[in-house]
Every structure is written in structure tokens, then in C-alpha cells.
Design a protein around this nucleic acid. Structure first.
Lengths: 249, 249
DNA sequence: GCTTTCTGTCTTGTATGCAAGATAGTCACA
DNA sequence: TGTGACTATCTTGCATACAAGACAGAAAGC
């Protein structure tokens, strides 16, 4: 059991590297994840990379465009609404199911909130993004239920992708306030209120999104490239956009 | 199921065939899913089978024992508790988040409850198992949130595996009663009560488990002896497709 | 008879090769 | 100049070959 985990670690490593890259807002939605590039980066063959991509696809983190490549998902406005709704359902349900907050849990959350404050003071936006999402995962961890932790981690990753697409401004202070209120309610043992605050908090964040903004004008452009020249005008109108991340080679 | 030739559909077909086989209790926990056998059954190479297995693994449906094979998961007692807790969290959160039941939804649930009654009358246990799990998925579908539907489908699959391991007797009538009560509350627009009833219902089912029973006393033995699980072959063969068998190899 | 070792066979793990689709660049032509 | 076709190249899709671990059963030693 404890023997050669060297190869096994790389296997999970690809998956985890990408997820944590998203969780810390270092990987943008729509980023192209070429099998060959990842294979070279991780020093493995395409086979392993593909396996990681397949796993990430079932987790809703990446998707494949046939014969074109793997891309980090760019959630649509509908997706965004669904993700927030799912989070409200799961997080409120989770908080309502809690009965007590251990000293350990209390300390962990307190430490986390301190981290948030520090990151705000330091203006470290990437870390802040990570922490803002991680708060909710921490709460899930308190429940000790690994299934819920996994669900919320993936939903949080998608939330961050949504933020990068639709959130023009990052109201960190507001989110931090929300987290503090939730923590207070939990410490007071009022989990019903904590659940309500959590729903409220998620509503606030969702309201802060501009869901009318297109997820990625380039993607529509790409899709319509194969269409007859009837769409030429539309293409020209959108063509002054800079290319996104895929600019290697 | 006549789409066995289109390469496009086979890829999801493997995954879906296994999941629906579990949902209808035709595939038992611990069933060995040999890559070669599945490849032969579906007429594809091991590559595609492995991809399906990887996806199912991230969904918590199968697991791999290195160099020994893929197996349908045999949830431990701790897993079972976690699954039921997760279901309570998600389903209660979901019902609480609902605001109204459409006529369509009402009709669909009513039709489902009728199906349950019919299956009980017919004594069709496999179909009954399927319907008992499907009721909860139907509710999720009413929400129109595909994310939650997927989460609950996978949790339901695991629930059924748990039942097959720990549930000595199947109290179908009791479950059906629970479903009816939940539906009544929903139709009355009392979703808070529906959520409470749902938690109660899941508690009842969980209480009906004998979690002291080993997942499968034979499984440890089987694993260490690597006996060819004839139940696996029988189940796979009855799913459909050619019976070319490959038992002597 | 009992244990140990060895070997054949089965399994998955991993890399690689080739096929086929998609894209972009180029060139011919009106 | 604009437009269409052609081609070179890059991408994933999929199958296959081989490596290496795990196990069962036979053989050997006590």
C-alpha cells in the first residue's frame, strides 16, 4: 500500500493542479488545456493527461470540443444561476443539519477569517479569491462528510470561474462581512440563522454578477467561423477582441 | 439499446449502462468489471472502457484495485452513513428551496406513485428498487437544476448499493408511504414540512439498515482469492448484448 | 501432510502509433 | 481586391503493444 506512489501522485497531480489553479483564480475560464502541453509539463504521456481531463469533465470543470481541444469551462448565465442555486441548496441544507460547533472548528474558522482580513489588507487578490471560496469548503469540512466537501469544492471552483466571467468588481469586504456573520451565528449555535445568512450571502454575491455580459465573445466567434459568410458582419463586429490565453507555439 | 454500433453513443453507453444497472439493482456491489470483458461486450477497445471507468470512479460508483481490476464500490458502514447524511442535506435543502409545485410536476409525481403501487402489487422487486430511488431523482428534476439531479442520481446509486449490502428486508410499503406523505406536503405547498418528512423518511430507511453486517463477508475472501465472480458475469450477461461469454479464459 | 517457491496466466498501467477532423495559411483566379 | 479551394499542420479519438504486478496452481523440499 505504501509503496510506489510516485506515478500515482502525478496522476492526481494533474487534476489537483488544475483545480487548485482555478480555486486560486490563476486559471481563467476558456483556458485551453492541450493534451500535449500538459503531457510535456508533467512529464507523462497523453494517456494520463486524458484520464485527468475525463475526470475533470465529469466534475464539470473542463469540457472537450471534439478534435479541437480541452477547455476550462465557461459557464453560461444559465449555468451560473444553476451553480448558485445548487450552492444555496447544499450549503443551507448543510448548516441546518449541523448541531454544534466544536472548539476546533471554531478556531479553524476564526483563523480563516483572520486570513481573509490579512489578504484584504495586503491586497492580495488571488489569495483573497481563494480564501473567499475556501471558507465555504471549510464549513463543509466541519461536517466531516467527505461527499459534501467534494461537491462543494467543485461547485466552488465553478463559482470562481463564474466570477471571473461575470463579476466586474470584487466586493471582498462585503463577502468577508457575510462570512463573519455566518460564523457568528454558528458560534451562537443558531444554525438555522446561519443557513439563512448563507443563502443571503450567496444571493448577494450572485446579485453582484452581470449576467448579461457574454461569457466569451470569442467562443461564439469560433463557433460561427464555419458558417456561410452571412455572418461576416457579426464576425467583424466582434473581431476587435484580443485573443485569450492560448498564445503559445 | 440498439445503438451498439454508433461510436458516439457507446462512449456514454458504458457509463450509463452500468449506472442504470445499479439503479435497478441488477448489478451488485463488489461486482468485478473487467476491462476486457466490458470491451468485448460493448465492442470497443479497452481505452474507451477505461475512460468510462475513470468517470465512474470520480462519481463514486466504482473503484480500482491496482492490477487486479475494477469493482463496483462496496460502501463501508461509514460510507453508508455519509451517503445518507449527504442525501438528507441535499434533499432537505432542495425541498426547502422550492416555492411551488406545477401541475405538470404534480402529475409526474402522482404517476410515479402509481407506478410504485403497481410494482408493489406485481411484486417486481427490481423495478421497485429502481422506482424507490427514482422518486427522489424525480423531485430533483422538478427543480430544473441539472447539477442537483446529477448529484442525487449518483447518491441514489450508492444508496442502492448500500441497500444491497446492509438491508436484509425491503420495506417497500413503508417507503412508499413516506413518498406519499412527502408528495402530499408538496402538493399542499408546505415545502418546509416536505423537507422534514424527507429527512424523516431517509432516517427511517437508514435505521432499517444493519450496519453491523460486514459489507460482504465473502468479499474479503473473494478479493484475496481472486475468485471469478460468477455473479458479475451473470449480471452483465443479462443486461443484454451478445452472450459470447468468455468464461474459460 | 505441510509449507514454500516457482511459474504461467491474468489483470491493469502506460506509452505510442495512426486515423480523422478542425484550423489557418497560401495560392490561384475572377 | 476579394473569394474560393487546397494543403500543411495541429488537435483529439481510438486501438494496440508491451510492461509489470497479482494470483493460482503446480512442483519441490521438509
Amino acid at each position: 500500500m505504501q509503496d510506489s506512489h510516485t506515478s500515482e501522485s502525478t496522476q492526481k497531480s494533474i487534476e489537483e493542479t488544475i483545480v487548485s489553479g482555478i480555486l486560486s483564480a490563476k486559471i481563467r475560464p476558456g483556458t485551453r488545456l492541450g493534451e500535449n502541453q500538459l503531457a510535456a509539463l508533467f512529464g507523462v504521456s497523453r494517456t494520463r493527461v486524458r484520464e485527468a481531463m475525463m475526470r475533470l469533465e465529469t466534475r464539470g470543470i473542463v469540457h472537450v470540443s471534439p478534435r479541437r481541444g480541452w477547455f476550462v469551462v465557461e459557464p453560461s448565465a444559465e449555468d451560473a444561476i444553476a451553480v448558485y442555486e445548487a450552492r444555496r441548496v447544499v450549503e443551507a441544507g448543510l448548516l441546518r443539519s449541523m448541531r454544534a460547533l466544536t472548539d476546533e472548528g471554531s478556531k479553524a474558522l476564526e483563523a480563516h477569517l483572520t486570513d481573509e482580513r490579512n489578504a484584504m489588507a495586503a491586497g492580495d487578490r488571488q489569495r483573497l479569491t481563494y480564501l473567499m471560496g475556501d471558507f465555504h469548503i471549510r464549513i463543509a469540512e466541519l461536517s466531516g462528510n467527505a461527499i459534501i466537501v467534494d461537491i462543494l469544492r467543485d461547485l466552488t471552483a465553478r463559482t470562481i470561474l463564474i466570477s471571473m466571467l461575470y463579476q466586474s468588481e470584487f466586493h471582498a469586504a462585503q463577502s468577508h462581512e457575510g462570512h463573519c456573520r455566518i460564523f457568528e451565528a454558528m458560534r451562537a449555535g443558531d444554525f438555522v440563522r446561519a443557513a439563512a445568512l448563507s443563502v443571503e450571502h450567496l444571493d448577494e454575491v450572485e446579485m453582484g454578477l452581470d449576467l448579461t455580459a457574454r461569457p466569451d465573445p470569442l467562443s461564439d466567434l469560433r463557433n460561427s467561423l464555419s458558417l456561410p459568410p452571412k455572418t461576416a458582419l457579426a464576425v467583424l463586429q466582434q473581431s476587435d477582441l484580443k485573443t485569450t490565453t492560448s498564445k503559445e507555439q
